[in-house]
Write a protein that binds this DNA or RNA. Structure first.
Lengths: 155, 155
DNA sequence: ATACTTGCAAATGATTTGCCAGTGT
DNA sequence: ACACTGGCAAATCATTTGCAAGTAT
């Protein structure tokens, strides 16, 4: 029951660079694979396999099987990873975008990103308290957001 | 896509106390419900619905439907909660046991508990860095365990 | 030309829902 | 008695697997 497929992210700056890396591994650039990458590069937040299949309003949508197979391969290569922010489907992002460190409120469900500074402070605390080298790539931190804390204090 | 059902844990010291709380809410103590509680009180680690259904070698096993329905109800009351340590099924514990703060290694899959002191330090860092009141009840912290860090450094 | 890829169908694993018979209080 | 519960069947949601036909290189 491991949490991650690839430990080593493959950081690329552009779609073209990603394609070069894939070709270098003997992988082909089909239209389906291309669309998956397009959507991931266009997204400004983690997206589900369903959203990727719908592409950018593509009709008919990509087959979900192809989406999952491509995502799996892209994760193996290290270009992509996925997070679980709650009980919904897994959400995929480019490893290069370095979308790391989400906060989810247990009460109102708010999702927000941790800024880099806060992320670094927290990682430091975890490292020194546990000996683990923390990664916030697969699960969010959860708890009560400031607003919900205030509300709870009113009771 | 919230992560938790009940924000307020209901902490009890014994099975009897749990039963009193349930009765106080007009809920009945059926044999199935009783077995679910027995297993949870006996377990020294989070257990899956399947494991609960098998009870302590009970034959025939409890119907999974009943297990899930009981767990749902127990979570609503605040007696129980569940964690997701990876991609497997949800794992259930008594809220009273306060099993909070798991560490999972992304590389070797090791699962361990955070000691209270480390947990407190980390919570403090998160609180001050993010404004969130952290809870480690639903997802573990992940990263590389000391052994896997050392191994990675050898490369 | 040939191996990598796709799409469709079907399987799988976890969990939920409908429904009616059973039982705790 | 009567409402709360359990068990069985079937549905649902996310994801995976098998396989034959399609296509990038």
């Amino acid at each position: 029951m491991t949490t991650a497929r690839s430990i080593q992210p493959l950081l690329v700056d552009s779609l073209d660079e990603a394609i070069i890396e894939l070709r270098a591994r003997g992988l082909r650039i089909s239209s389906a694979r291309r669309l998956v990458l397009d959507v991931l590069f266009a997204a400004d937040r983690p997206v589900s396999a369903d959203e990727i299949a719908d592409g950018l309003g593509r009709l008919p949508p990509l087959d979900l099987t192809s989406v999952y197979r491509n995502l799996e391969m892209l994760e193996d290569v290290g270009l992509v990873r996925h997070v679980h922010l709650g009980h919904g489907p897994g959400l995929y992002t480019l490893a290069a975008t370095d979308e790391e460190g989400y906060l989810v409120c247990d009460s109102c469900g708010e999702v927000r990103r941790l800024e880099q500074g806060a992320l670094d402070e927290i990682k430091l605390a975890i490292r020194s308290a546990s000996g683990y080298e923390p990664r916030f790539t697969h699960f969010p931190l959860t708890g009560l957001c400031p607003a919900c804390v205030a509300e709870a204090d009113d009771d």
